[in-house]
Design a protein around this nucleic acid. Structure first.
Length: 589
RNA sequence: GACCCCGUAGCUCAGCAGGAUAGAGCAUCGGAUUCCUAAUCCGAAGGCCACAGGUUCGAAUCCUGUCGGGGUCACCA
């Protein structure tokens, strides 16, 4: 339950009761009335802008309206104090008992507090990573992988039905390049001197084991075949090998997909001689959305390279794109885009309501055309949205690390994880909103790992357990008693600092909602940092005020209540860490 | 030429479906440890929210334009 929504409903109800006979009430957009935590805690627990929004349509002073609403709301048993301030804000302070009751709710829900808030359980497809299966994953892939994964967890937590998907680009020319590169490594494994890897092929060492494996399975057999025979064989073999490699890389980051969708599947002819792309295009043709034409040359490019070629085009500009997009190359074969269209169609036929694409900033030009595809195929029956992650700039000691495939100083995802650890990598990637570029300085992340916010949050979780351990040692509290408190016991928690902690936890469901709606998993990371900070601060208050320490050996019931508070914090932090996919240690030394 | 993202403290960034005095961390300076892990906390200092207009009761937040930084732009994948 989100207390802000709860009180928003109460305020709306109050408006209808108090101003029911205002003729302009119908014209007021009640959704714009918000109840939120005031910026300054001294204003109260909740604040609403209702009166200010009503002032214009009602032609009355906002403060007068606020007074009337406040008078009505004052009857609410949960409200301790209500006042009008500033230009017409209504500030509400709630009864301590309300917060005790809310703490009981948190404890009852445990790690599911804030979960499953959605009323309509939409089917959501989140496609992320989708790196080409031609080698190991490099750092550049990290960000999308982590953001996509955290977003998927977030949506699942919110109560959506989520499928995590990886689109395997295994149909283009790069696959032949891969197969040929593997073939060389195979020859090498047979003892031949292959010299330097020729320009245009993949030089990476990661293909060596694949070549060896081939030599082991096939001996010299492949060597004696013509290329037309070994090529298709090696395509499959090396793609499988690369996908295994990628899956392992992703596992290092704790990223696991539900579906790996092969692009080749879209090109394969079915029994009726038609591929999925054929069928999708036929369907679009029926609706007159496809035509043969030529595209204008892009402005700002050298026009001398431009050739006027008739191509099969999708009328993407009818659906918000800048220009129409080619479905077929001039030689009649399908473009990559055509496969994309068929792929979207496939997702649509799998009944997803929302398709999310997590793409790198270098794919910014795709946003409009993907949107057009969705509109053309699904109309308003499904939503497609694209989340662009800006690029990661890799630094070491403040110097940019240059990567180039040719010189072989490619920094892989695994290098990064090995050096700084999964938790730190994931947190770093999420401790920034995705549409801002990210500087990732190795030396900083490793050297300052103690100052890394991830440890700060994890430490708060560990600290909770430290309290439990101490409670066990000193007062014989057992593990199953940590969060077990009656409401009457929780009412002992009436210090303002304790209430403030409960309030901080109470905003978690709201954060989950806004993070889901805005598709911004970084909000969870920031929230966790704040909650951890509040907990650490409260802990230290115990130094000056021993009466506020969690453990009070003279009062078992008070201690029990405070352990409840700690358990709730532990649960909320654990829930948040689970969403962003970071471990929640019970001890850090 | 067009499109997308960004511009907030010395540095790295939050805040942006409009709300009250713009917040953290780092760095700087000053404090807290016989006391539940100091991987922590408390305090000080630090701002024309790039600039200029507009919308309104109210703008860091929305709109337009300018400047600056990054990315992208026809049969590649």
């Amino acid at each position: 339950m989100n207390i802000f929504t709860l009180f928003q409903e109460k305020v709306v109800e109050a408006i209808q009761k108090v101003f029911g006979n205002e003729e302009n009430l119908a014209s007021v957009d009640l959704k714009k009335i918000v109840v939120e935590p005031p910026r300054d805690a001294s204003h109260g627990d909740l604040a609403t802008n209702a009166a200010m929004l009503l002032a214009k349509p009602f032609k009355q002073k906002p403060r007068d309206l606020a007074e009337k609403l406040a008078e009505y709301l004052r009857q609410d048993k949960d409200i301790a104090e209500i006042s009008v301030a500033g230009p017409g804000f209504i500030n509400i302070r709630l009864q301590d008992a309300f917060w005790a009751g809310h703490l009981a709710i948190i404890l009852k829900n445990g790690k599911n507090y804030g979960a499953n808030y959605v009323k309509e359980k939409r089917k959501v497809n989140i496609e992320y990573v989708s790196a080409n299966p031609t080698g190991p994953m490099h750092v550049g892939h990290c960000r999308g992988a982590v953001i996509g994964d955290a977003l998927a967890n977030l949506f699942a937590f919110a109560g959506f039905e989520v499928t995590k998907e990886y689109y395997v680009n295994d149909a283009g020319a790069q696959v032949d390049v891969l197969a040929k590169s593997t073939y060389l490594r195979y020859l090498e494994a047979l003892g031949e001197d292959i010299g330097a890897i020729p320009e245009g092929l993949y030089p990476g060492d990661y293909l060596k084991p694949v070549g060896k494996k081939l030599a082991k399975i096939h001996g010299v057999a492949l060597k004696e075949m013509p290329e037309s025979d070994w090529l298709p064989l090696l395509r499959d073999f090396s793609i499988d090998a690369m996908m295994d490699l990628i899956r392992e890389d992703l596992a290092c980051l704790n990223v696991r997909h539900d579906v790996f969708f092969s692009e080749r599947k879209l090109h394969v002819k079915a029994e009726d001689g038609k591929s999925l792309i054929d069928k999708t295009l036929a369907h679009l043709e029926e609706r007159d959305l496809v035509y043969v034409g030529t595209l204008p040359p892009p402005k700002g490019q050298k026009p001398e390279n431009w050739e006027n070629r008739p191509q099969t085009l999708l009328k993407a500009s009818d659906f918000g794109d800048d220009i129409d997009r080619p479905l077929k190359k001039s030689d009649g074969s399908y473009t990559y885009f055509a496969a994309d269209v068929a792929y979207f169609n496939d997702k649509f036929e799998r009944n997803f309501d929302d398709m999310l694409y997590i793409l790198g900033a270098d794919h910014g030009g795709y946003v409009k055309r993907l949107g057009a595809v969705a509109k053309a195929i699904a109309g308003y029956e499904a939503d497609l949205s694209v989340l662009l992650c800006q690029l990661v700039k890799l630094l070491r000691d403040g110097e940019q690390v240059k990567m180039s495939k040719r010189s072989g100083n490619l920094i892989t995802l695994r290098d990064v994880v090995d050096e700084v650890g999964v938790d730190a990598v994931r947190f770093m990637m999420l401790y920034r909103k995705s549409d801002a570029p990210l500087d990732f300085d190795f030396s900083k992340v490793t050297e300052q790992s103690k100052d890394n916010p991830v440890f700060y949050v994890q430490y708060a979780h560990a600290r909770a357990y430290s309290v439990f351990r101490m409670a066990h040692e000193r007062m014989k509290f057992e593990e199953n008693e940590w969060g077990k408190v009656e409401l009457s016991g929780l009412k002992k928690l009436n210090d303002t600092t304790e209430i403030a902690l409960i309030q901080k936890m109470a905003s978690f469901p709201r954060i989950v909602e806004t993070a889901t709606q805005a598709r911004e998993p970084h909000r969870i990371a920031f929230y966790l940092y704040e909650l951890a900070s509040a907990f650490h601060a409260h802990w230290n208050i115990g130094k000056d005020r021993p009466d506020l320490r969690f453990i009070n050996e003279n009062d078992k019931e008070l201690t029990r209540a405070r352990l409840g508070l700690v358990a709730a914090i532990r649960d909320v932090i654990a829930a948040g860490l689970l969403i962003i996919g970071i471990s929640a240690p019970t001890e850090m030394r």
